[in-house]
């Protein structure tokens, strides 16, 4: 049933800000975003918050709730005691624009640096054939809703702004892994992942996996396999020799370096 929720919401902009105290009426079944919307409609018309689908599908409403990176629309008030004060702050790794809205342009800049898929020609009947089991590996990564919570949480950039230029971040390692595992892609993405995207800087602490609202096993299924494949190529003397004398790892059949 309905009750008065105590909230602390960060209000401010790039020049600074503070937690504001609010009390807002909430009811059964509501999520944190509902409480913020009610604040907006009744007490703080100019409270800035990003949102779209309100169903965990678009990844717009990322923020930190009691210090934990989460989607505002998928965090239910029933996860907290009615007497508990809920504190909402913007994602910490990105510059604040206003209130809960941050400048996530880093992610879009990185996205522009990514390679695209390059498939060979279609089959003679104009169709392509791939088996379900082979597309499923990539499909897991394509569930990504680009909420950028993994980017926000990753230690490599969270406390080290200076790493950003050389580091694409977990969301985009997913993309490299997806291309690498695409059954019909013709390119070898390993050097690009290492050199352009900075995959080597990841030290596999799995923080990204923990905050992923889609439950994508970013570290285990994307990052570690990519790292293994890069290491394979870089250090394995047999692979090096094989490459020299024209033998190839079967996994890389038909792929040329991107």
């Amino acid at each position: 049933m309905g009750y008065e929720l105590k909230m602390r919401v960060w209000r401010g902009d790039q020049s600074g800000g503070d937690l504001g105290d609010y009390t807002v009426e909430v009811s059964e079944g509501e999520v944190v975003l509902d409480a913020l919307h009610r604040l907006q409609a009744t007490q703080a018309g100019d409270l800035a918050v990003r949102w779209n689908c309100k169903a965990g599908k678009c990844g717009s409403c990322s923020a930190e709730i009691n210090g934990r990176p989460r989607l505002l629309c998928m965090t239910r008030l029933s996860d907290f005691e009615p007497t508990e004060t809920i504190t909402v702050t913007p994602m910490r790794s990105f510059p604040v624009i206003r209130d809960l809205v941050t400048d996530v342009s880093y992610n879009y800049e990185k996205a522009r640096e990514l390679p695209g898929v390059e498939l060979g020609p279609r089959d003679p009947d104009g169709k392509r054939r791939m088996m379900q089991v082979d597309v499923e590996r990539g499909q897991e990564f394509r569930k990504c809703i680009e909420c950028f919570l993994c980017q926000n949480t990753c230690h490599v950039v969270r406390d080290h702004e200076d790493n950003k230029p050389a580091f694409a971040g977990p969301r985009f390692f997913l993309r490299y892994a997806e291309l690498d595992m695409h059954p019909l892609d013709t390119r070898d993405r390993r050097s690009a992942a290492r050199e352009t995207a900075g995959l080597g800087m990841c030290n596999i602490t799995k923080c990204c996996t923990e905050v992923c609202p889609e439950g994508i096993r970013i570290t285990d299924n994307a990052i570690i396999p990519m790292k293994e494949r890069i290491v394979d190529r870089k250090y394995d003397p047999l692979v090096w020799l094989g490459a020299k004398i024209g033998l190839r790892n079967k996994d890389d059949d038909g792929r040329t370096e991107a």
Partner: peptide
């Protein structure tokens, strides 16, 4: 739809490997 596949979309497949 085929164009989307050319551009990297990964649709679910039929038993024959076609777009389901």
């Amino acid at each position: 739809v085929m164009e989307l596949e050319d551009w990297g979309a990964l649709f679910d497949r039929t038993e024959d490997g076609l777009i389901s």
